[in-house]
Lab assay of single mutants.
Amino acid sequence: TTYYDVLGVKPNATQEELKKAYRKLALKYHPDKNPNEGEKFKQISQAYEVLSDAKKRELYDKGGE
């Protein structure tokens, strides 16, 4: 599973699309609303952290993490 899959976006997604997808999923899986989905929330946050940063995203796209 790639970070793009976690957020449900395509690899060519814009920053705005990433932000929108992250917010939607973060609300859905937030531990306050969904106590059993803490791990999913962490995955979503990690994916967004990497993909929202241009340098980290470039490194990730080249095969790094």
Rank of each mutant, 00 (worst) to 15 (best):
T1K: 14
T1S: 11
T1V: 13
T2C: 11
T2K: 05
T2S: 15
T2D: 09
T2H: 06
Y3W: 08
Y3R: 01
Y3V: 02
Y3M: 05
Y3H: 07
Y4P: 00
Y4K: 00
Y4Q: 01
Y4V: 01
Y4T: 01
D5C: 07
D5Q: 10
D5A: 08
V6D: 05
V6W: 12
V6M: 11
V6Y: 06
V6Q: 05
L7F: 03
L7W: 01
L7S: 00
L7R: 00
L7I: 04
L7P: 00
L7M: 08
G8R: 05
G8T: 03
G8D: 05
G8L: 05
G8H: 07
G8E: 09
V9F: 00
V9H: 00
V9S: 02
V9N: 00
V9L: 07
V9A: 03
V9Q: 03
K10S: 11
K10D: 07
K10E: 12
K10A: 12
K10W: 08
P11W: 10
P11Y: 08
P11R: 10
N12V: 04
N12P: 03
N12I: 06
N12E: 07
N12D: 13
N12K: 05
A13M: 03
A13P: 01
T14S: 14
T14C: 04
T14P: 05
T14E: 04
T14K: 04
Q15D: 13
Q15W: 11
Q15Y: 13
E16A: 11
E16C: 08
E16M: 10
E17I: 05
E17K: 04
E17Q: 12
E17A: 06
E17W: 04
E17D: 11
E17H: 04
L18V: 14
L18I: 15
L18D: 00
L18P: 00
K19N: 14
K19V: 11
K19C: 12
K19A: 12
K20D: 15
A21D: 00
A21F: 02
A21G: 03
A21L: 01
A21C: 05
A21K: 04
A21V: 05
Y22E: 01
Y22G: 01
R23D: 15
R23I: 15
R23W: 14
R23F: 15
R23Y: 15
K24H: 11
K24G: 10
K24V: 15
K24A: 14
K24N: 13
K24S: 11
L25C: 05
L25G: 03
L25F: 04
L25P: 00
L25Y: 05
L25H: 04
L25S: 03
A26G: 05
A26Q: 10
A26P: 00
L27Y: 11
L27T: 12
L27I: 11
K28D: 07
K28Q: 13
K28H: 09
Y29A: 03
Y29R: 02
Y29N: 04
Y29S: 03
Y29I: 04
Y29M: 05
Y29G: 01
Y29H: 06
H30N: 09
H30G: 13
H30W: 06
H30K: 07
H30C: 10
H30M: 06
H30Y: 05
P31Q: 08
P31F: 06
P31D: 07
P31V: 06
P31I: 06
P31C: 07
P31H: 06
P31R: 05
P31N: 07
D32P: 13
D32Q: 09
D32M: 09
D32H: 09
K33C: 12
K33S: 10
K33Y: 14
K33R: 10
K33A: 12
N34P: 04
N34G: 07
N34E: 09
N34S: 07
N34A: 10
N34D: 09
N34R: 07
P35V: 07
P35N: 06
P35Q: 09
P35I: 07
N36E: 13
N36G: 08
N36M: 13
N36P: 07
N36T: 12
E37A: 13
E37L: 10
E37W: 11
E37K: 07
E37Q: 11
G38E: 11
G38M: 14
G38R: 13
E39D: 13
E39C: 10
E39G: 10
E39Q: 10
E39N: 07
E39A: 12
E39S: 09
E39R: 08
E39P: 05
K40A: 10
K40I: 12
K40L: 11
F41A: 03
F41W: 15
F41T: 02
F41Q: 02
F41Y: 09
F41I: 04
K42A: 12
K42V: 08
K42M: 07
K42D: 08
Q43L: 13
Q43W: 10
Q43K: 10
Q43D: 08
I44W: 02
I44R: 00
I44V: 09
I44M: 04
S45K: 15
S45V: 13
S45A: 12
S45Q: 15
S45I: 12
Q46M: 14
Q46L: 15
Q46I: 11
Q46E: 13
Q46C: 10
Q46Y: 08
Q46S: 06
A47D: 00
A47H: 01
A47F: 01
Y48C: 03
Y48R: 01
Y48G: 01
Y48V: 01
E49V: 07
E49M: 09
E49D: 11
E49H: 08
E49R: 10
E49F: 08
E49T: 08
V50P: 00
V50S: 04
V50R: 03
V50E: 04
L51D: 00
L51Y: 00
L51Q: 00
L51R: 00
L51I: 04
L51F: 01
L51S: 00
S52I: 09
S52R: 10
S52N: 05
S52G: 10
D53R: 02
D53G: 01
D53N: 06
A54F: 08
A54E: 13
A54G: 07
A54I: 13
A54N: 07
K55R: 10
K55Q: 14
K55D: 12
K55M: 11
K55T: 11
K55C: 14
K56C: 12
K56D: 05
K56H: 07
K56R: 12
K56G: 07
R57L: 03
R57N: 03
R57K: 08
R57Q: 03
R57P: 03
R57E: 03
R57V: 03
R57F: 03
E58W: 06
E58D: 09
E58S: 06
L59N: 10
L59K: 07
L59S: 10
Y60C: 04
Y60S: 02
Y60K: 01
D61H: 03
D61Y: 01
D61I: 02
K62D: 05
K62N: 11
K62M: 09
K62L: 14
K62F: 06
G63H: 14
G63T: 11
G63A: 13
G63K: 07
G64E: 13
G64A: 14
G64L: 15
E65N: 13
E65F: 15
E65R: 02
E65S: 14
E65V: 14
